[in-house]
Design a protein around this nucleic acid. Structure first.
Length: 251
DNA sequence: AAGAGTGACAACCGCCAGCGT
DNA sequence: CACGCTGGCGGTTGTCACTCT
């Protein structure tokens, strides 16, 4: 099967999007939706290929995108999800509302991967001021949620190998303890985080079952249950569920 | 102060799966 | 069933801002 050409390269603009292009694309998608990405640029009057438009929309312009720094909890969720799912960024992103696969992928490659590769005792990376990119990003919102994370909402993967006092320490330490170092010590880890062919058997029923356990309406009157706490509870249920699946490392 | 080095992010590329014909 | 188109995905690259020397 021959590969369809992405687009006619001639005359189509590439590179960074201008605010005007963003505005055109946003207005068009909001008015007409995006039933056909390939036809969209022509209809909208954009000199871009459909693929480029789709990427720009899904990674940047979509109104439900949460921009700004990742919280510690989000980072930990990504780390744990990556252990479960491998490099399936879209699957990971689907479980983190408001985050895109591209964003998560970037975070992983520029931040989390290095973090996991470093032994705990090594000196932390030079604290770079994260504000620098916020000035570049024209729609950054300095997102920094303050999720009310308790020890109970820590992902179970962290818990069994740590004393209660350790559990209350930073999730960075928690994450480090559960990754390369522990994997090297435990032979039953027959896969690596990058091994997408990992023998983890997590099928769709895994997620659907976890979703069944997640009932956001069960305690909707409680002020504790803001949207993000619901997310974290969802994750808690997911990982509790994961702990019962044969073949998964014990928590 | 200036150049080199580094980190972060946006965007592109190529492949693949699903769907319609 | 084969083919072609499309959207989606993951890997990679390019660019720019910031830090270091």
């Amino acid at each position: 099967m021959g590969r369809a050409p992405c687009c006619e390269k001639m005359g189509l603009k590439r590179g960074p999007w201008s605010p005007e292009e963003d505005r055109i694309l946003t207005n068009f998608v909001q008015d007409h939706g995006h039933t056909n990405w390939r036809a969209l640029p022509k209809q909208a009057g954009l000199l871009r290929c459909g693929k480029s438009c789709r990427l720009r929309w899904t990674n940047y312009l979509r109104p439900d995108i949460k921009r700004g720094n990742f919280t510690k909890e989000e980072e930990d969720a990504i780390i744990n999800l990556h252990e479960l799912l491998g490099n399936r960024w879209s699957a990971i992103a689907a479980k983190l509302p408001g985050r895109t696969d591209n964003e998560i992928k970037n975070l992983w490659h520029t931040h989390l991967k290095k973090r996991l590769q470093k032994p705990i005792k090594t000196t932390p990376p030079k604290s770079k001021n994260k504000t620098k990119k916020q000035t570049k990003s024209n729609s950054s919102s300095n997102y920094s949620s303050s999720m009310a994370i308790t020890n109970q909402t820590h992902l179970p993967i962290c818990s069994s190998s740590m004393s209660p006092s350790q559990q209350s320490s930073t999730s960075e330490i928690c994450s480090s303890l559960t990754t390369d170092a522990s994997m090297a010590e435990n032979e039953y880890y027959s896969y690596t985080a990058d091994d997408t062919a990992a023998p983890l058997l997590i099928d769709e029923s895994f997620w659907s079952d976890a979703a069944e356990n997640y009932n956001p309406n069960s305690d909707s009157s409680s002020s504790y249950y803001n949207e993000e706490n619901k997310d974290m509870e969802f994750w808690y249920n997911v990982f509790v569920k994961a702990g019962g699946i044969p073949g998964l490392p014990e928590f």
